[in-house]
Lab assay of single mutants.
Amino acid sequence: MEVRTIKVFTTVDNINLHTQVVDMSMTYGQQFGPTYLDGADVTKIKPHNSHEGKTFYVLPNDDTLRVEAFEYYHTTDPSFLGRYMSALNHTKKWKYPQVNGLTSIKWADNNCYLATALLTLQQIELKFNPPALQDAYYRARAGEAANFCALILAYCNKTVGELGDVRETMSYLFQHANLDSCKRVLNVVCKTCGQQQTTLKGVEAVMYMGTLSYEQFKKGVQIPCTCGKQATKYLVQQESPFVMMSAPPAQYELKHGTFTCASEYTGNYQCGHYKHITSKETLYCIDGALLTKSSEYKGPITDVFYKENSYTTTIK
């Protein structure tokens, strides 16, 4: 009895394709271990004539594949690729409408935090270190965002349907971005203890939790000093293409032309909904596939993004 075979390709990165001759009487799992086709788990399936010449994702289970996976995804987590594939199996079914010149995501599976993050990423200057993220990001900007969303979920250790947080998501993504040249110098002034300067680099240099107003941050924000008295913390120097200011959701007025974009969060910790506000020729609110415009805006804002380049204080 002759062994019926077909020729397929296996890959971990969709760049390096490895030619395989597979036995049609055995499952993919018996031949390769966990195997995925377009995100779908085909591990328990036997090869079919229609699979001839198709590319299958496999887990990096030998040295060659491990090197290829690390170079593309910059992670050695053995569960990463499987999590990416199972997320992709959902995100490829989502709709990605162009809204006001940006790629958004039609609401499904509690994905409003991903839509808000995706919209924000198209408006701030950011370059990702893992080629996987950078490639998928370019495709997302062009309207094909399924891979990018699935990668975000995998890097953030999230599953489809789980509630997510924009600030946490951005923080994970910033860790995989090139923020080497970003720098922030802060000064804390206390009447009792004097003053202390701190220099922050990388992710810490672009994120701040405690106030939404970048102007206020430049002037000074009140913080408790270690001595128990009130101290003032203010920005001395900022070198970065953008800054992200966050605070627990509270009524906040966004003035046209003073910011790049913002995240609105309605609801409580267990259950809520994100919308995205962007400042173009007027203010726009993007909620999944829905767009509304207004000249002014007041609502429960939790993150505001500002364009920056270089700032030095005039406070002496």
Rank of each mutant, 00 (worst) to 15 (best):
R167P: 07
L254G: 04
Y269M: 08
V236Q: 01
Y84F: 12
S246F: 00
T260V: 15
L102K: 05
N178V: 01
T266I: 09
L290T: 13
A136D: 02
A115Q: 01
E52Y: 11
Y155A: 07
L126E: 03
P131K: 02
T198L: 14
Y265S: 06
R139Y: 09
G299Y: 02
F128A: 03
S294K: 12
L65I: 07
Q197D: 05
Y28G: 09
F70P: 03
R4A: 14
D77I: 02
V21F: 14
N49F: 12
H18Y: 12
E162G: 15
D180Q: 13
N16G: 09
A150Y: 00
G161E: 08
N129L: 03
K158M: 02
G53W: 12
T64N: 12
A262F: 00
S181I: 00
F148S: 05
T198R: 11
G299Q: 01
V189I: 09
K255S: 04
Q123P: 06
H48S: 13
W94R: 01
L212P: 01
E125Q: 13
P97K: 11
T64G: 14
T159V: 14
S240R: 01
T43S: 14
T11R: 03
V8S: 04
C112P: 11
V12G: 07
H276V: 03
Y73H: 06
G220A: 03
F56Q: 01
K106A: 15
V221Q: 03
V67G: 12
S294H: 15
L118T: 05
F70H: 07
E308I: 11
Q270N: 09
N178R: 07
F148Y: 06
S50G: 12
C190E: 07
T199G: 04
Q216K: 11
C227Y: 04
E281F: 02
L102T: 00
K218Q: 02
I286G: 09
M207L: 02
T91H: 01
Y208H: 06
Y96N: 01
V42S: 09
S79I: 07
G220L: 04
Y113L: 05
Y274H: 08
Y274N: 00
Y311M: 08
E296Y: 14
K95S: 15
P34Q: 15
Q98I: 15
T192S: 14
T11I: 10
L37R: 12
S213I: 07
T19H: 12
T258V: 01
F217S: 01
E144D: 14
D135N: 12
H273L: 02
H51L: 06
N14C: 09
C261T: 01
N16L: 09
N16M: 13
A146W: 08
A154M: 00
T91R: 05
L17D: 10
V58S: 07
H90C: 14
C227P: 05
N147G: 11
A262T: 03
Q30H: 14
T226L: 10
G257T: 05
C227D: 01
Q216Y: 02
Q222R: 10
Y208K: 04
L65H: 02
L121S: 04
D62H: 06
Q20C: 07
A262Y: 02
K316V: 15
C156W: 08
C112E: 06
Y252F: 10
Y137C: 05
S240A: 05
D63L: 10
N89I: 14
H176W: 14
L290N: 15
K316E: 15
L119A: 12
V12I: 11
H51I: 02
A132Y: 06
I6P: 09
C156Y: 01
Y73G: 05
Y297R: 01
T120R: 06
P34H: 12
K218D: 05
Y214C: 01
S181Q: 13
E264S: 09
A117G: 00
A87V: 05
G220F: 02
L173C: 03
F305V: 11
A136V: 05
H51V: 03
T75V: 11
G164R: 03
A250N: 09
G101I: 03
G194C: 08
S246V: 10
Q195F: 10
L133I: 02
P78I: 10
R139C: 12
R83P: 03
N49S: 13
L212Y: 08
F9W: 10
T258H: 08
I277W: 15
M244I: 04
R139F: 03
Q122R: 06
N89C: 09
G161M: 06
E125C: 01
H273Q: 05
K46M: 15
P78H: 13
E264G: 08
Q20W: 08
N61Y: 15
P130E: 11
